[in-house]
Amino acid sequence: MDINEKEYKEYCKKHAKHSPLIKDTLMAFLFGGLICMAAEGLFEFYLYIGIAKEIVKTLVPITLIFLSALTTGIGIYDDLAKIAGAGTLVPITGFANAVVSPAIDDKSEGMIMGVGAKMFTIAGPVIVYGVLSSVIYGLIYWFVGVI
């Protein structure tokens, strides 16, 4: 067929309907900000009831992860994410959603190769690259300290 490939690709790019950038970004800002503010609220609350600060630092993300897992299970996290976009993707709750959602889906392939193996299909890269970069930082930090 004699349609020019380059021309066609450019035409399609121009033709394609774009995501509503301003609305999407505003929503992401709003929802992301609210989740972080709620986390701050939790932080203050845990301190207020007398939990030590070092524990609270870990307890807050754990609570958020629990809430995200629960809302993913009952099926509202994805509805929220449709509106919030990156606002629900970037906070730690998005990480939890990425762990729980494939696990729920792949229950049909069994508890070992389904749930066990698929749990980190989406969130795995975050841990891999996070750990790798932290080790690189650790080695450099150690090396600088030695000399």
């Binding site: 970004t25 800002f29 992301g32 900000g33 972080c36 503010m37 990156a86």
Partner: peptide, 15 residues
């Protein structure tokens, strides 16, 4: 917290 958290998310949305 709202501002910084929101901005980090908004930047990801633009990406």
């Amino acid at each position: 917290s709202f501002l910084i958290g929101g901005l980090l998310c908004a930047a990801a949305q633009v990406l």
